[in-house]
């Protein structure tokens, strides 16, 4: 640019000026885009809080659901049960798969490539397809009916790629020197994984599991046709249940209890926000942990 200015004085200066104007315009656009993003997302959260908080009262948390109180108590219990079952399955399979991919395979063999591709595919499948698949496989084929179990199994498959990916990232973030040290002291590979690598990767794994909790809590489409919409405490694994998000959907689409829908939205939003922030803090902790000791 300077060279241009020297050789072609007046014309060069004017080009430089217009270009910097364009650059400034782009910078201002970037600022506007950020403000718009914040206004939309932050605006939505604030709107729901302002509209919903006044309607949070005791009747919302009564044990027995009926059309009078629209209580979300049973939905909260159902959500917790669903999360525990789905996440234990997804956790075991996902962490196992991540260990295999991060600790045992270094090659680009066909098997490894296809496993990775399968996880990528699973991660991209929309929840409504999981819902239909869960209905076809668990509800109809295995004759579970609309049930807690069918819903949990569907969600477990849905969360599997998320848990796998975050765990693998956490394992790869553990410095190689840890493994070298352990192997050098004579520990086998298995012992190295369970006593050295997994504890070091712990915050990252927990962070991934928390993301899974958030995903399960927020899921609706995959549950309508697998777990049903019965708002009650489940009698067994085979009872139909209604999680908080499904409850929210029923309230919003019925349109009769908009106040309750706002209040439920606040509860749901608060839970998901807490869980996501916790997950975020955990992964920040993993980073610190491994930077500090590397």
């Amino acid at each position: 640019m300077k060279l241009l200015n020297q050789t072609n004085a007046s014309a060069g200066v004017s080009t430089a000026k217009t270009i910097s104007k364009r650059a400034m315009a782009l910078k201002i656009l970037a600022l506007i885009a950020t403000v718009v993003t914040l206004a939309l997302i932050g605006g939505m959260m604030i709107f729901i809080l302002i509209k919903g908080v006044p309607f949070i009262n005791q009747s919302l948390f009564e044990v027995q659901y009926n059309s009078e109180n629209q209580s979300l108590f049973s939905s909260v219990v159902d959500t917790v049960l669903m999360t525990v079952i789905a996440l234990s399955i997804a956790g075991i399979l996902g962490i196992g798969a991540a260990i295999y991919l991060a600790e045992y395979t270094h090659s680009q063999s066909k098997l490894v490539v296809s496993i990775r591709y399968a996880f990528e595919t699973l991660a991209g499948i929309p929840s409504i397809i999981y819902g239909l698949f869960g209905m076809l496989l668990f509800v109809v084929y295995f004759k579970m009916g609309y049930s807690l179990l069918a819903g949990s199994l569907t969600l477990a498959i849905m969360c599997l790629p998320l848990v796998m990916r975050t765990t693998e990232e956490a394992l790869l973030a553990v410095p190689t020197s840890y493994r070298e040290g352990s192997l050098a002291l004579g520990a086998g590979r298995l012992r190295t994984i369970f006593q050295i690598v997994l504890p070091a990767a712990n915050p990252g794994i927990v962070s991934g599991l928390l993301l899974g909790v958030g995903r399960i809590m927020g899921e609706t489409a995959a549950l309508i046709f697998t777990a049903g919409t019965v708002a009650a405490l489940p009698a067994s694994l085979f009872s139909s249940v209604r999680t908080l998000s499904v409850h929210m959907y029923v309230l919003a689409s019925e349109g009769l209890y908009i106040d309750k829908a706002y209040a439920t939205a606040v509860v749901l939003l608060a839970l998901v926000a807490v869980i996501n922030v916790a997950s975020w803090l955990m992964s920040a902790r993993l980073e610190r942990k491994n930077y500090g000791s590397a």
């Binding site: 950020t34 993003t37 939505m44 749901l268």
Partner: peptide, 22 residues
């Protein structure tokens, strides 16, 4: 800003839908 975006990526679609509706 970063936490706001983190939270936003976790907000359930049903809440977005409700916000859209109202």
């Amino acid at each position: 800003i970063q936490p706001v975006i983190t939270i936003a990526s976790g907000v359930p679609s049903i809440i977005y839908g409700f916000f859209g509706l109202v």
